[in-house]
Design a protein around this nucleic acid. Structure first.
Lengths: 236, 236
DNA sequence: AATTAATGTGTAATAAGTACATGTTGTGTA
DNA sequence: TACACAACATGTACTTATTACACATTAATT
């Protein structure tokens, strides 16, 4: 926070105040989607020469009159057409060398979206889903950002009912379990998984069954209304 | 006070192509200390007219050629004389109205320091320790920042051996328990606490006893070398 | 020698987590 | 129509973690 003393120090060092505005701030969104039993992330081909052939996360500079979160929502809505998505701030990356064209500090958010939602619509030909498991290298420090967000997501899912933002409104317990398995990259025991979920009391039994399967259908569940909280988890 | 005006001027000066550089970025440090069985935080009197009478966290603008973490370490070292302190990034606060003199986005770090360390030395008369429990209101959004950092600290201490950065090298289990109680603001059972700590295997029995007490002294322990990791917990 | 104040230690009860197998149901096919 | 299939639904024994709780010991002080 710039208080008197700090700015005095700056003045003594003959640093013009304008220098402090030579840093740009951006947001980067790690947009997770779930499809075909895989956790995916939305990437775009990098347009920087330095990173030609590499993909990068979706991000943008923050506008001077725009909240950090608003900026993330803007990126999300612009790129995917989705509003009211789940969004959570994870970490801010601010090493000096991280952007080749200048000083850019970026705040990373992760977001969970239901790829089957009727509003979901990619606005750009170069936007593609990539299986998180298969991503080896990304432009900038985006691999680090992705890892950090994935780690955060993993630590959230047993504590908070967030993964439902990746699913349609109705789902079977098998689908839910497959989703957990995809995110955590582990195999789970069906009975223990159900017990654990049951104890959390997140789900509403919809008294409906799966349809169009070539085997016994499972019951369908939905997330209880009270847990349908979107947006960021702002504290206190 | 005149400096804040300069800041504002700078912010307004260039609204054309420099638009995206009209945001300043700062770091704020929630510096925790432990003394007299209380968790304290280091605060300074705000010099802003808007916040006269209120205290604020220690922070500074990030310099264009400086990593975000470097900036936090600089603030810490400048204000406390301490190097190699424990520092962890918590959250970035970026709402548009949070700073009265202009657009400033701030990244909050918390830091744990041993107030008895020989290097510890406050460099400013207006710097004071305040009991976290007693803090009602702070300048800017610093109360929110403090709460967020306190919450993070609380969630860390049972998982990671971080609190030892608040203690001297040698301590008794009673002192350690009192520290946990101060941070969590709860009373703990002695036997269960010891069991929990024992299981973590963080401590080295120093084969020494407390001295100068008017009652039975306790054994002294130290943190095992392998856990003496300072600095930020950078991910993967 | 007695008092004081805090140390050090264990067990029983409950709750949570893990490993694991059998009968059931709807669909498709012979 | 009955048989095979594939996935559903469910419970128990075992281990590990958490909680609640009381008494003998030690060093300093009087």
């Amino acid at each position: 926070m710039p208080n008197e003393l700090n700015l005095k120090t700056a003045a003594l060092e003959k640093i013009s105040h304008l220098d402090y505005f030579n840093i740009a701030i951006s947001v980067d969104c790690v947009i997770f989607g779930y499809d075909n039993k895989e956790l995916n992330v939305l990437l775009i081909k990098s347009d920087l020469e330095e990173f030609s052939g590499l993909y990068s996360l979706l991000g943008d500079l923050v506008r001077p009159d725009e909240d950090l979160e608003r900026a993330s929502y803007r990126v999300l809505e612009d790129r995917t057409g989705m509003e009211d998505v789940y969004l959570e701030q994870v970490h801010t990356f601010g090493t000096t060398g991280r952007h080749p064209s200048g000083r850019v500090i970026t705040t990373a958010y992760y977001s969970l979206i239901d790829v089957t939602h009727h509003k979901f619509n990619l606005n750009h030909n170069d936007l593609h889903w990539h299986a998180v498991k298969d991503i080896k290298k990304l432009a900038f420090d985006h691999k680090l950002i992705l890892n950090t967000c994935l780690q955060r997501l993993r630590s959230q899912i047993m504590e908070h009912p967030v993964v439902f933002n990746l699913l349609q409104d109705k789902f079977s317990l098998r689908e839910l379990q497959e989703l957990y398995e995809a995110i955590l990259d582990v195999k789970l025991d069906r009975r223990n998984f159900r017990k654990k979920i049951a104890v959390k009391d997140w789900l509403q039994d919809l008294n409906e069954m799966e349809t169009n399967l070539s085997h016994r259908p499972g019951k369908l569940y939905g997330l209880k209304e009270q847990y349908k909280i979107k947006g960021t988890n702002t504290l206190a």
